[in-house]
Design a binder for these strands. Structure first.
Lengths: 185, 185
DNA sequence: AAAACTAGCAAACAAATGTTTGGTAAAATT
DNA sequence: AATTTTACCAAACATTTGTTTGCTAGTTTT
């Protein structure tokens, strides 16, 4: 590192917060620069374009979720229910320790006008999430029903996060979490 | 009417389609004008600003939903289940006959950076929706449980619409609809 | 110590943004 | 028929947008 010590990871994190809270198109490079204590032009030393920056943000969110949520489902230790609870705990933290909803769901809602690279990552994100949920459901519900239940759980969580943004009320997620955890005995 | 016959309602409808498919900030006045066969400046003869136009779009969506969905819940005729099915049918049509997700949920996801007028309409929309669902659930589940079930249904539907946008797959909504209709005997 | 590299600033860039202005021709009103 | 109103165009407006360029000073490598 030289003069300043703004790392790529720091820019990605700040950009993530802004994109998530205000949306991709309502966040300018100047906004991101300001949040990092940089001029907007300086960001281009780290990222080729705003679009590439967004891609890296989405990838980082995917990896973070994979590590803290998806991978837990496939751990050897603990009962499926315990692993599910651990996953739900991590999900809750992710959505409520910072402001804004689900950047994947929000960005995904505008697929036809989005760069294809965004869509690809978003699809992978939700597919991986479904597989993780389905895996902890399978011992009790079998493969087929678990797929269905996994999508159902994701849908409810996405809805809960949306309503949280609108009404500033965590309770949608709280009861959703209880319902999902209650699916395993 | 004089020369051309572009009505306010036509502009609202075109703007609705664009806002819904691409988001508020990713839709320009030039885009809306083009969709109406107008120059962007001409829209200001009908609406004071882009923000006011969006407000009218949200109000129009609210009114349309109220007429075709919410009001059905309180009709005198038919069993609660029949009315619920009628509501779900109208919801399905709304979301799948045109492209894009739920403009209320999408816009609501960015509340902190949105004009307060947007948030107000969006909150009213979801509150009215909850009350309508709860009303058809009440005979079977009682007042308290019906509230919970109503929010749960809305969450699932919002999630289903989001996933539909991402995977171009209606089946999320189809099974959600069956689940919700199955809640009433 | 010299050379090469890095991170950032300052300024400029063309293009796109939402909005305003002045005019025109058709329609509605008188 | 004269007047006013309506819907729209054409052009300009100031800002903001994402991006590029040239330069500087610190850091790393040699």
């Amino acid at each position: 590192m030289s003069k300043g010590h703004t790392t790529k990871e720091q820019i990605i994190w700040k950009a993530y917060q802004l994109f998530r809270e205000r949306g991709y198109y309502n966040t300018s490079m100047a906004d991101i620069g300001q949040a990092c204590g940089l001029l907007k032009g300086s960001i281009y030393h780290h990222f080729a374009s705003k679009e590439v920056l967004m891609e890296e943000v989405l990838k980082a969110v995917y990896n973070s979720f994979k590590q803290q949520v998806f991978d837990v489902a496939f751990q050897a230790m603990g009962t499926p229910k315990e692993r599910l609870e651990k996953m739900m705990q991590a999900i809750e933290q992710t959505y409520f320790q910072e402001q804004g909803g689900c950047i994947m769901g929000q960005t995904g809602a505008h697929v036809p006008s989005n760069p294809a690279a965004f869509t690809s990552i978003i699809q992978q994100f939700f597919s991986a999430w479904k597989q993780a949920f389905a895996h902890v459901f399978t011992p009790q519900y079998g493969i087929e029903d678990s797929q269905r239940l996994a999508w159902q759980a994701i849908q409810e969580i996405e809805g809960a996060v949306t309503l949280y943004c609108i009404f500033f009320d965590k309770s949608f997620f709280i009861s959703t979490r209880q319902r999902i955890e209650g699916m395993l005995a």
